[in-house]
Design a binder for these strands. Sequence first.
DNA 1: GTATCTGCAAAACATTTGCAATTCT
DNA 2: AGAATTGCAAATGTTTTGCAGATAC
Lengths: 141, 141
Amino acid sequence: MNAQTINKIKDLLEKHGIQPSYQRIKIMEFLYKNKNHPTIEEIYNNLSPEIPTLSRTTVYNTIHLFNQKGLVSVICIDEKEMHVDPDVKPHIHFKCIKCGRIYDIKEPAEVFSWDSIDGHIIYEKEIFLKGICKHCKNESI
Amino acid sequence: MNAQTINKIKDLLEKHGIQPSYQRIKIMEFLYKNKNHPTIEEIYNNLSPEIPTLSRTTVYNTIHLFNQKGLVSVICIDEKEMHVDPDVKPHIHFKCIKCGRIYDIKEPAEVFSWDSIDGHIIYEKEIFLKGICKHCKNESI
DNA sequence: GTATCTGCAAAACATTTGCAATTCT
DNA sequence: AGAATTGCAAATGTTTTGCAGATAC
């Protein structure tokens, strides 16, 4: 991994008022390299070999901080585990019920343009689709 | 509660291949009287006085069975607890981040008419909105 | 009389919390 | 030195599982 990437991430964090600690930089770097909506466990398992002292607590802390500062969004698409998405622009998520993969869908949805409905003020919008993805469809028996 | 209601629920359960046990009838009755997306805990707490032997396990078992048979849908709108919705027709949910209430939104969404996207087959569609509801908005300081 | 349903107790599991040790500036 | 960050260990809270007793057909 090159120094230029690290510096870009450092700048990004500082611009959002986040102290760029080693752990935070590595976690953000991992998110940008793995846009497959990893879970906390996946982030932890992947970075553990390189950062042997890393704890799950730090991953949780860091993701909460990133989420709070608007750097990532946390998606709770059923199941029990939360997934981390470095793309904070509103978009549709499709989850395959066979392989578990989560896909980003670029298709626009009018819901994303609403800022209120029935008198309620809208701050967050999520569209979750579930089914069989194009890969699993073709692998069927 | 009248015998007519019980019979309607019995018929409904039997029509879906579900043995109409006392617990199942009471849980379904509760769901039809309380359309506010109750949690397992709320169902359990409300029925416990009337059915002292009721266990959380039975509520879980029953809701999973109902869900499997298409009688209710289970919604996981962030947080940790699941909510039960006796309305299985696709519709938008709005959750107030202040009071926690979940509202059904009647507004149509084009997403609900899709049955595939980007080559993926869609079986389930969920739209979750979050913000401040019209009641909390007016109660603000 | 056999299959199904119920419910207790324990397990599983993701996430949070308290706090002490470490690391930055 | 002082403030922020890290990470261990324990707690929390929801859901699941194993199994024995009760109930229904």
